Amino acid sequence: MEFLKTCVLRRKACTMVCFRRSQAVPKPSVRKISTTSPRNTVMPAWVIDKYGKNEVLRFTQDMMIPIIHYPNEVIIKVHAASVNPIDVNMRSGYGAAALNMKRDPLHIKAKGEEFPLTLGRDVSGVVMECGLDVKYFKPGDEVWAAVPPWKQGTLSEFVVVSGNEVSHKPKSLTHTQAASLPYVALTAWSAINKVGGLNDNNCTGKRVLILGASGGVGTFAIQVMKAWDAHVTAVCSQDASELVRKLGADDIIDYKSGNVEEQLKSLKRFDFILDNVGGSTETWALNFLKKWSGATYVTLVTPFLLNVDRLGIADGMLQTGVTVGSKTLKHFWQGVHYRWAFFMPSGPYLDDIAKLVDAGKIQPVIEKTFPFSKVPEAFLKVERGHARGKTVINVI
């Protein structure tokens, strides 16, 4: 409810959006009868029945078509989806303990298992059915969304999502293009805007460093920071330098050509660092922030899900809290802010991102597309790493 109130207050200038979001409070045990219900009861999908390597991916034509259980839900016919690193990690069991805690018991078998589990976070498609409380969408609307990792995914013919997670697709994009953006865009938006506190009113002239700049999150982050008139330094490999320069990066550091720390020493210090890499970067990256000026380092690589997998829910959350608390305090006394950021599903944030897209300030960066029949190949490509944008699946 607090999240919902915040969304409404921030968007009070737009009556229509406020009205839409105010309708999104779940009310259990209410079902909406479809006005455009699919005739079949089963659909094609890519699922897993256990965690493991790529061979656990299984194509089926007998996955049950999702139905609406709550009046704020929407069923989308999937036109395009994409594969993110989190999908590869989830295939292998990453975060299962924490995610099962969040999963809706209505979508889990009585024996308590999440299988068969459909992966895929991004969707661009057409609304097929709306719950009774959904007023902002109607059947036939072209929409896009990022589905939270605790819900059934988008590598299927249909997917059900909360109306508050959906947004009207940017008019300037095809479904294939639109499916490349939601998950990475919302992850970057969370880090930059919601955690980092940057926006189009306070970014002009700010010096920003993006570590891991050529992947999906990095390529979006470059563009949104340039749309807000920041000065962007991108760290990537030499073969990705042309891409990130075209997206607007002012300075480019090739991490393969020498020690990144040494290369950064020749540049002025930064107001904001976005870290998509993690690992050893934390040991030196914060040294390149401006001290005692409100400069902030935000990392998207956190041990929360790993801690819960390894230690259990209670001990994992405790360990995570101790870790983030100690690091935050340590760096605060050194004159900089240390923060963690996570993906946040949000239709209102996608509304804002869609405006930037349709204004020509954000463009999708797609490295490769695959047909629906080649989902395992798409997973292998993402698993190899070194992304130059997104990997998209054309479902229809």
Rank of each mutant, 00 (worst) to 15 (best):
E2M: 14
F3I: 11
C7I: 13
L9K: 08
R10K: 09
R20V: 04
S22T: 13
S22C: 03
Q23K: 15
K27A: 15
I33W: 04
N40W: 11
P44E: 14
N54V: 15
L57S: 04
T60Q: 06
Q61I: 09
P66C: 08
V74L: 00
I76A: 04
V88M: 07
N89K: 08
M90V: 09
L117A: 10
G120T: 02
V126A: 04
M128Y: 09
V134E: 04
K135H: 09
W150M: 02
S156G: 04
E165I: 00
V166S: 15
V166G: 15
S167N: 11
P170F: 03
P170G: 01
Q177V: 00
S180T: 09
Y183G: 02
L186A: 12
G197C: 10
N201V: 05
K206C: 01
V208K: 00
W228V: 00
T233G: 03
A234P: 04
S241C: 07
D251S: 10
Y255I: 00
G258Q: 02
N259Q: 12
E261Y: 02
Q263Y: 05
K265V: 00
R269P: 06
R269I: 00
F270G: 05
I273M: 01
L274S: 05
N276H: 01
G279L: 01
S280Q: 08
W284D: 04
G294R: 01
G294M: 08
T299E: 12
T302M: 09
L305D: 05
L305H: 15
L306Q: 15
V308I: 12
V308N: 10
I313Q: 08
L318G: 13
V322A: 13
K330S: 13
F332Y: 13
G335W: 01
F342H: 12
M344N: 12
P348S: 10
D351L: 00
D358I: 13
G360A: 13
E367G: 12
K368F: 14
T369L: 12
P371W: 03
F372Q: 02
K374H: 10
A387R: 05
G389A: 15
G389V: 13
V392M: 12
I393Y: 02
I393A: 07
